[in-house]
Computed example of a mutant assay.
Amino acid sequence: MEPAVRAAAASCSSYSSLHPPRALVARRLGRSSGLSLPARRVAVAAAAIALDPFQETKSEQNDTSETEVFACPVCYEPLIRKGPPGMNLPAIYRSGFKCSKCNKSFTSKDVFLDLTVTSGMKEYSELKPARTELFRSPLVSYLYERGWRQNFNRSGFPGRDEEFQMAQDYFQSVAGGILVDVSCGSGLFSRKFASSGAYSSVIALDFSENMLRQCYDYIKQEETPMNTNLALVRADISRLPFASCSIDAIHAGAAIHCWPSPSNAIAEISRVLKPGGVFVATTFLSTPTNSGLFSIDALKPLRQIVGPVNSSYNFFTEGELEDLCRSCGLVNYSSKVQRSFIMFSGQKP
């Protein structure tokens, strides 16, 4: 550093306790100082650091780590991220995530970021009910968009494009925000939400590692730009890895009937939604075909005893879904029904 530059920086440092305005600093380091233009620039930077000795440290921290929307699934504290910013696949792959409170680290070395409680464990692997484990199968993950999902139209599901547009209509009030597609499967709707450009970020979230890998394969096949704001996250629907009141929109397509505890899951969804945030889901209504005699009102109490043994899935009446949403604090319940298909929505007050 030139002697004149050191002198200018020292001069500003002596005034730091008085917090002089930037204009005064500029005049002191202006043309009258006799410094060359490059030297003046160095002097201004040095003076800024002298005025705020923490500025350089803050700048370095912002380059390497930042608090994201992600939270620790153990204690719900925000995760500290070290690596390139952004909610796209390459940025997350190159980043490290750690909870500053419980000191747990989470890996993003796979094509997805693993934010389950069991992430990083070597010996213990948690098993879920059969209806959940089924979708962790590589075969089911492969077949899901290759015939499995198309069979839903027999129950009244209108199809991917129409279901997407119906959900978009519900999400109009939160356009531009962060959307999480929970139990996303192979990303059937996650990819459409991301490609729509209607959201600042889209997070495709599922418990199945193979479903997320299949989603990644579809992204590559469809030549979706890898820097699209789409992230793949492995997480438990009953332990969502997001800070409270941090998410604008949550979508769950044909999923709630597979969840081990729908009440816990919707309570979690309510927790992470921002005030005004919107939850939209589709599922199969309870019918004699999928629920047998348990679809009859008088026999519903027996479903608590026999149902879990008799069926791999939970099916609901519309009244039960509305009651479930309201019990978890969601308001403005709305629904659209077509045979045994239902799309319903609730809002965080």
Rank of each mutant, 00 (worst) to 15 (best):
E2N: 15
A9R: 10
A10K: 03
S17Q: 11
P20I: 01
P21G: 08
A23H: 08
L24P: 02
G30D: 13
R31M: 04
S32Y: 00
V42G: 13
A43C: 13
A45V: 09
I49F: 02
I49K: 07
D52M: 03
P53K: 08
Q55C: 01
Q55F: 12
T57Y: 08
N62M: 11
D63P: 10
D63M: 14
D63H: 05
V69T: 08
P73I: 14
P73S: 07
P78W: 04
I80P: 00
G83F: 02
G83C: 01
P84I: 03
N88A: 13
N88S: 15
N88C: 15
P90C: 06
P90A: 07
R94V: 00
G96K: 14
K98N: 04
K98T: 13
C99T: 07
C99E: 01
N103F: 14
S108Y: 00
K109V: 14
T116H: 08
T116E: 05
M121C: 04
K122R: 12
E123H: 03
Y124I: 14
E126N: 07
P129C: 10
R131Q: 12
E133Y: 07
L134A: 13
L134W: 08
F135V: 10
F135R: 00
R136I: 05
L143M: 09
G147T: 06
R154S: 15
G159P: 05
E163L: 07
D169T: 06
F171N: 04
S173T: 05
L179G: 05
D181I: 15
C184Q: 03
G187V: 09
R191H: 03
K192N: 15
I203F: 11
A204R: 06
D206E: 08
F207V: 02
S208F: 00
E209L: 06
Q214A: 12
C215V: 12
I219L: 04
I219R: 02
N227S: 13
A231V: 09
R234C: 04
R234M: 15
I237P: 09
L240Y: 07
A243P: 03
S246T: 06
I250W: 04
G253F: 05
A254L: 06
A255Y: 03
H257A: 02
P260W: 04
S261V: 11
S261E: 07
N264R: 12
N264Y: 09
R271I: 06
G276N: 13
G277C: 04
G277P: 07
V278D: 10
V280T: 12
T282E: 08
S286N: 10
S286D: 06
N290M: 11
S291E: 05
S291T: 00
S291C: 00
S291K: 14
L293R: 07
F294L: 11
S295F: 02
D297G: 00
A298M: 03
L302G: 00
I305S: 11
V306F: 15
G307D: 07
V309C: 00
S312M: 05
Y313M: 12
F316D: 13
E318L: 14
D323C: 08
D323Q: 11
G329W: 07
G329S: 10
L330Q: 11
L330M: 10
N332G: 09
S334T: 05
S335F: 05
K336D: 05
V337H: 06
S340E: 01
S340N: 06
S340C: 09
F341H: 15
F341K: 09
I342G: 10
F344C: 02
